[in-house]
Nucleic acid binder design. Structure first.
Lengths: 337, 337
DNA sequence: TTGTAAGCGTTATCAG
DNA sequence: CTGATAACGCTTACAA
């Protein structure tokens, strides 16, 4: 066993010739210490390599400074960019991120939240999956804040940040029609995430309001390979689509590659494509994909701001929902412009 | 202020009609409790929504169960896939990952390590940047384990996991020559990370051993855009390269896109390209890039295994280095095969 | 097997 | 401004 040997405030106090409380005060933001004492304590701390034990501090203050990020498929471009933004904002706010990967097995979001409780996280941000109502209640009752990102849930208590997926779908429909497209299609996965389904519903609904039918195909998880498969199915239909709106950019990339390399189609001449998320690859010249940008920075900022505010005043009963605008990023995968 | 109101072992004990130590024992893996007591405690705990406070436990046991992941550019495909693998392995080993983003400002790796110390992390895994020698020493002295991934450092104490970058470079050279390439080039960034430089050096050295000169160009950070710029520079040289080895896949994608869309070159007919990392995009049909696979899973497994072993027996003085093999993934961006 | 009591490293309260 | 002293929620001898 490695001998864990962290320096304690006690040792610093002895070396500096003051009481432990003096040491504590030196490292507590708003405390009154004389310049002289502070100096001596700091010197002693520096020499000994002392660092406040946040575990013990959390025990006293009831604030661990920990925020749990609960994520699946975190290797995905969109997810990882969101994590990046969130960790950055959290650190700026003096918090630290605990990352829980829920890729394996079912009910794992609940397990993750239990971990969050064990470590007395001040808050949890859920980027994927949907927790059981009972466990969310437990979190809230324990005084833990909750943020749900892109999960259209109706539970009261947590902050819910969503995009205007449906409206976005309507906007892209207009763009397709303006480009002269007639055979519309939607490429989705079988995952059935609320936001994904909202995009599909919005697109289909907007079209049918104009008396237009949409070919919908769903397959696999929301990734590149699934996009390819869906494209194969769509493009071999009797009525071959000339416009495909994809549930996300990853699928859109798959759709474009299949259309080009397997069906020798030219984009946007023979086929218009749009995606969602505006991942980095969407801007790569091989794809040059028209898509909707997730306001990742805003999203992260809002989430963290909520957590910070939570420390002071939040009306717990209030159902808090934030609807952000997905900005259309126009590129070359749709004719016209 | 939100009233933090977590349930304590005390309350469970009262409800179950036992002592708090009994409760503690029920939740301690190897402890002796009668089936009857266990049952009553579990019931009470369930009813009250009790969860062991890991902060307090860590205080006693000197094992927080926390492992810090210190990362920059975590939105990048390679980095995020590594984080995914690491969090998964850590969770499998009963540990939990704390994620520290070091994108901003200099010396931030040191700051990150200090955070790790404050939270009494059992270990830290550094995926980017290089910590100051003094702070590494502090970590080691405090009994914290350290793992450096792909940072060719010589400090004793930490586990260092590296790839055989140089040899890999030699292998790709052979592939280029076999494909009949004559004008070789290396596309690098200005970042100067050890592993990136090792790839460059290995390639140039292997070539010059055969009397062949390599055109080296470096620009920006190791991403797609930098790849484009470097390609522009390389492909406008009098002696236009017919083979480019890129420091990583992201740059390779940029290089390919520039070659195709700005120079109308056909790959691999007029230009052979190779990358490093085997990110997901390398397998997309638009790129179909020959590259070296980072053994991400193995890497994560080894790192975590080291941390687990560290708990029992590790010769601290021993300089531990692990050199993993980068497997060549053959795809269509090099002629022949 | 169980309970009692001590201690882990902090911060908060309250005298001085 | 400073120093005792009491928590915080847990584990772990030690004794029963």
């Amino acid at each position: 066993m490695v001998t864990k040997d962290f320096v304690s405030a006690q040792e610093v106090a002895e070396k500096a010739g003051v009481s432990r409380s003096a040491v504590s005060r030196v490292f507590t933001p708003g405390a009154s210490v004389s310049a002289a004492t502070r100096r001596r304590v700091m010197d002693a701390a520096e020499a000994l390599g002392y660092h406040v034990n946040h575990l013990a501090r959390g025990l006293m203050t009831n604030e661990s400074g920990i925020v749990c990020l609960i994520v699946s498929e975190l290797g995905t471009p969109y997810r990882s960019s969101l994590i990046q933004a969130l960790t950055q904002q959290l650190q700026l706010a003096g918090k630290i991120a605990m990352l829980i990967n829920t890729d394996r097995s079912d009910g794992s979001v609940d397990r993750a939240l239990r971990q969050a409780i064990r470590y007395r996280a001040d808050a949890s941000i859920i980027l994927s999956g949907l927790p059981d109502k009972s466990i969310t209640q437990l979190c809230l009752k324990s005084g833990q804040r909750l943020v749900l990102i892109n999960r259209d849930d109706d539970q009261p208590g947590p902050l819910r940040i969503n995009l205007d997926d449906q409206e976005a779908a309507g906007r892209i429909l207009t763009a397709f029609l303006r480009a002269g497209c007639r055979q519309l299609a939607f490429a989705n996965s079988e995952v059935g995430t609320p936001s994904l389904m909202a995009r599909e519903r919005g697109f289909v609904a907007a079209a049918s309001a104009l008396g237009i039918e949409v070919a919908v195909e769903r397959h696999g998880s929301t990734g590149y390979e699934a996009g390819k498969v869906v494209a194969q199915r769509l493009l071999t239909r009797k009525e071959r689509p000339d416009a495909i709106f994809c549930a996300n950019d990853l699928m859109a990339c798959g759709v474009m590659d299949a259309a080009r390399h397997q069906f020798n189609m030219s984009i946007p001449d023979q086929l218009c494509v749009a995606g969602f998320d505006d991942i980095e690859q969407a801007s790569w010249s091989s794809y040059d994909l028209t898509t909707f940008a997730q306001p990742v920075e805003t999203l992260a900022r809002e989430a963290v701001a909520f957590l910070a505010a939570a420390a002071s005043t939040i009306d717990m009963g209030e159902v808090e929902t934030l609807k952000l605008h997905a900005k259309l990023v126009w590129r070359g995968s749709i004719r016209g412009g």
